[in-house]
Design a protein around this nucleic acid. Structure first.
Lengths: 136, 136
DNA sequence: TATAGTGTACTGTAAGAAGTGGTACACTAA
DNA sequence: TTAGTGTACCACTTCTTACAGTACACTATA
């Protein structure tokens, strides 16, 4: 079952927390292509939020090509496709790396530690596909 | 010479762009320990900003231990030191990785491509210390 | 000592983002 | 017909970002 959790008052906006977690669930195959997501109102009730906040997150994920919405039916995980141009992809990768690396280097992690941590997390994410769907 | 550039109206706040670039300059040793930074008013004039915006960025960098301010004299690159607890460092590393990885995985980069890109950029950052200070 | 330049700290103002609350409409499926 | 869906508004509040101006304590230098 797809669960997500949100902490209001954190440094990161709620709707962005939803985006992060859905992205991650898709990346780890916890959510497979075609899977349905909770409706905006249902998820809003679960998380004690306004439905507009959930809708905002879903809308951005649709824009990114992660989700696909069907009016009157629901929101579903979309088939993998590229929505950005090659140069835009590169630009976003570079910017994301800059932010990430300048942050962790400031935290005084060494390059080796960073590379290891990234490799480990990537393995966690993409290696353990759908292994939790046994207890359903 | 230390140059930095800022784009207003971008997705990232101006003061945060300053923080990112100073962090990066320190990480790459473009700015060495003890080096002075432009004064808040001078930098504000260069970038056509309010001095409060620059001061806000500097203040956060001081809080992070990247910079050190001397009242009446200026702001300087601080000696490397840790300002966060071990658990806080780990928490920040994890959060930064989550944001970074969910973002680039959504961009449809493969784990291999991501690891390579990170390794390459890390090498650029920490390998080419102060090599541009020849054309001064 | 005067003066200029420094960081810092206020106040006030304006614009935008984030989030809530409510309503409404078109669509789908039972 | 009815319930549930996505979507689109509007109004409102709170917080963040940024600007504008002023002020003060400090440092260095003439």
């Amino acid at each position: 079952m797809f669960e997500l959790q949100v902490t209001p008052g954190g440094n990161r906006p709620i709707y962005r927390q939803i985006i992060d977690q859905v992205r991650q669930a898709v990346a780890t195959s916890e959510l497979a292509v075609g899977d349905g997501l909770p409706s905006v109102r249902q998820l809003a009730e679960e998380l004690v939020l306004n439905h507009n906040t959930v809708a905002k997150a879903y809308a951005e994920l649709v824009r990114e090509g992660v989700l696909e919405s069907q009016h009157g039916r629901g929101v579903f995980v979309a088939k993998r496709r590229r929505v950005f141009s090659a140069s835009e992809r590169k630009r976003r990768l570079d910017q994301a790396m800059n932010v990430f690396l300048s942050e962790v280097l400031t935290l005084d992690y060494t390059p080796q530690q960073i590379e290891e941590a990234v490799a480990k997390r990537l393995d966690q994410m993409t290696g353990s596909k759908a292994e939790e769907s046994e207890g359903d």
